[in-house]
């Protein structure tokens, strides 16, 4: 899919994209054993928009996350932020990782204030700003606790606050709720929606969770199983402000069913592939 075609997907029109992913291609290894993780993927994200990339395991989502975040250098194609090609991590992008990423040797407020410490912001200002974002993610009163005293969901909120505190133009999240239970996931989804709306935060979420993607997104990029290509881009026309209550609506169910129809085929291919690899492994 080209950039021109993504422009017709119903994303907010008349605005220049803030983030453009243009024909990104990434292959691991060389020769016959090479694996194409991402195959000429193109889409864009407009300012204030919430876009999710969804696909089965092994479709190259995390590779794409690392490329957009500047953690993977060698790839073909372009990732542009405000029309500037990125080379390495970009200051406009704030990343939230799938794995637990709080610093266990720092308490909540020192974790959140960490990026400001790196920027040389003076202590009183960085504590003020950290307090604001801790409040925003609903962790007021937990500032002095160490991460080990928090639940998984709370620790992930600390990571989100730490990313937001430096006020990135683009929030990039890689399955941030993957390790959480369904109820916590829905409630955190509410929190993310609220923050995204309050800050008008441009957000790109990488996920394999269908309900999460529909609950949060303005658009969903559906990826194919290996090699990861854009299969379809779906506009989610659900009312905003949005909360987890939306999951009980007919429209929500319709979107889930529609996207699942696309994903099912890809997920089945992925499952068949992994089963045959396992069978081959057991024979060998």
């Amino acid at each position: 899919m080209t950039l021109a075609s993504t422009a017709t997907t119903g994303a907010p029109s008349g605005q220049r994209p803030q983030l453009v992913i243009d024909k990104v291609f990434k292959q691991f290894g060389v020769g016959p054993g090479a694996v194409t993780a991402v195959d000429h993927v193109s889409f864009d994200v407009k300012p204030g928009e919430f876009v999710s990339v969804i696909g089965p395991s092994g479709c190259g989502k995390s590779t794409l996350f690392n490329i957009i975040g500047g953690l993977l250098d060698e790839y073909e194609g372009d990732v542009l932020i405000e029309r500037e090609r990125i080379a390495g991590p970009h200051k406009a992008v704030g990343m939230v990782f799938q794995e637990e990423s709080t610093f266990p040797w720092r308490n909540v407020i020192d974790n959140v204030a960490f990026p400001l410490e790196l920027q040389g912001v003076n202590k009183s200002e960085r504590l003020d700003r950290a307090h604001h974002f801790i409040d925003l993610v609903g962790l007021k009163g937990f500032e002095r606790l160490m991460p080990s005293a928090l639940s998984g969901g709370m620790r992930q909120r600390v990571s989100i606050a730490r990313t937001l505190v430096s006020q990135p133009q683009i929030l990039l999240m890689d399955e941030p709720f993957a390790a959480l239970d369904e109820q916590t996931r829905l409630l955190l989804g509410d929190k993310i929606t609220q923050i995204q709306q309050d800050l008008n935060q441009t957000t790109l979420l990488i996920t394999h969770n269908l309900t999460e993607a529909v609950q949060l997104s303005d658009r969903i990029v559906v990826m194919t199983y290996r090699p990861g290509k854009v299969k379809r881009i779906v506009d989610i026309d659900l009312p905003r402000p949005r909360s987890s209550d939306v999951v009980s609506s007919d429209a929500f169910g319709h979107y889930v069913a529609e996207i699942w129809a696309d994903l099912r085929e890809e997920a089945s291919r992925g499952m068949a592939d992994s089963e045959s690899a396992r069978r081959g492994g057991s024979r060998g």
């Binding site: 500047g70 991590p89 637990e100 990423s101 610093f103 266990p104 040797w105 960490f114």
Partner: peptide, 28 residues
């Protein structure tokens, strides 16, 4: 853990900052 190193990289930390503020405390 590689995720802690990736957090540092995403924040554009220098090698010295990475060693002092992430690697050594994590390895302590």
């Amino acid at each position: 853990r590689s995720v802690l190193i990736n957090v540092g990289r995403s924040l554009k930390m220098t090698d010295a900052q990475m060693l002092r503020m992430i690697l050594l405390p994590a390895a302590l």
